[in-house]
Design a protein around this nucleic acid. Structure first.
Lengths: 104, 104
DNA sequence: GAATCGCATAAGTGTGTGCTTATGTGTAGG
DNA sequence: CCTACACATAAGCACACACTTATGCGATTC
């Protein structure tokens, strides 16, 4: 179940940090490691987990592999979240900002 | 960090099932167990995790404890998701539905 | 007030997870 | 070619996690 992969992938703070970094712009695995105190195999493993969760996708470029955010994973989270919209009115004020951002 | 608690809480399929059940209407821990093949301590532990993630809140009623969805956790997920809205246009069609639901 | 009920907590156990070191695979360059 | 490079994979290990059984605790009921 992909839903499980997504939440499990995001459960790790290091992986969320990697994802956040990629959200600022695609880059390869080595560039991702800079300023992150993480070994090369660990980064590779994290990227593998993010990839199978559809949160990230790869694009081979010579001997580099460029990674970027995959919108599919984000959309799946949004869908999951939408199931519970019945409880959002209680927080509707805080979400008005989000609504406007999304509507642009 | 609460963000970590939330994603870690949702990483477990049993906990997501409990949350989904509560989303259909608040109930106590015993009622939640029905049709779920889960021991009483396990349920109690899962509810404890969901509680500290602000996904669920409790309300004592005599010797029962009524649980219900806490909108705060959902709102925090929405906020996290909003950070990556830049990648949503690629999936905007699928999200139009969500937008309309939220706008009601 | 003793027994029962609803739930929480403690302690122990098997499995999963994230890391490490070591090695493999494919590409680029001299 | 042969070396260096970017990355993936394998194997092993320490720790976290979800479960179990046992017990505690407050509220109800008789």
């Amino acid at each position: 179940m992909i839903e499980n992969d997504i939440f499990r992938a995001l459960a790790d703070p290091t992986r969320r940090a990697i994802f956040e970094k990629l959200a600022a712009g695609g880059m390869n695995a080595s560039a991702l490691r800079k300023g992150m105190e993480i070994s090369q195999p660990a980064m590779s493993q994290h990227l593998s987990v993010l990839r199978s969760a559809k949160l990230v996708r790869e694009e081979r470029q010579g001997r580099f592999v460029n990674y970027e955010v995959d919108p599919e994973g984000l959309a799946l989270i949004a869908q999951w979240l939408a199931k519970y919209r019945a409880y959002w009115p209680a927080r509707i004020e805080a979400l008005k900002v989000l609504l406007k951002d999304m509507d642009q």
